[in-house]
């Protein structure tokens, strides 16, 4: 009986140790503590000025297209053009109109999280989405050729989400 009590007591104590006390936290939202509480409890943001798709224009610092085009970036596993990229599509359509004599190569790219053919097909769908977006603004489809480079053409090789995001993109350039 004594042993049983010891086991129960020890187990209960261990559970408290593991889970911590469930005592209610002190009220920091009191009249005199508002500003302190906000500083401690509020989750702060992290701004990455170099991240793609910022208000400085398509691709921001990381534009890997050439000849005046802007790279279009995609979410993980996705091949739809996001609303944040629509201005870049419009800009690319303008460049395409002005480069009437040249053919435009649209290159689909992926991050490294895919294998074999599927990743190349994903890059292709991205290139096709950009081509369709530009064509919708009046650019002749016969002027555009799409190619998927899958994960073979990374612009960033660090193992970070921000880096992977830079690789999920479509680049545009003139065929010379």
């Amino acid at each position: 009986m004594m042993i049983k009590k010891i086991i129960i007591t020890t187990t209960t104590f261990s559970v408290f140790l593991l889970t911590g006390c469930s005592q209610t936290a002190p009220d920091l939202m009191g009249k005199n503590n508002v500003s302190d509480a906000t500083q401690i409890a509020g989750d702060t943001v992290t701004i990455d000025e170099n991240r793609y798709g910022n208000e400085n224009g398509a691709g921001g610092k990381y534009n890997s297209s050439s000849d005046g085009f802007q790279s279009i970036y995609f979410e993980f596993g996705d091949y739809g053009v996001s609303s944040g990229m629509e201005n870049s599509i419009a800009s690319n359509a303008n460049v395409a109109h002005n480069a009437s004599a040249s053919k435009i190569k649209i290159e689909g790219n992926c991050d490294e999280f895919g294998t074999d053919e599927y990743n190349y097909a994903l890059g292709l769908k991205r290139a096709k989405a950009v081509k369709d977006g530009i064509a919708a603004q009046g650019v002749n489809t016969s002027k555009m050729v799409i190619v998927s480079f899958g994960e073979s053409n990374p612009v960033c090789s660090n193992p970070t989400d921000g880096c992977y995001a830079q690789n999920r993109r479509v680049d545009l350039r003139l065929v010379k």
């Binding site: 053919e117 190349y120 097909a121 292709l124 081509k131 050729v145 799409i146 190619v147 998927s148």
Partner: peptide
Amino acid sequence: SEGMIVCSDVSKNGSKLLLTMAPKGQA
């Protein structure tokens, strides 16, 4: 093929191939 082309498989006698292609931009 525009877009991509891959030889995914070869028949046992080597006479036929399964290809992934995108002649119209569609894999």
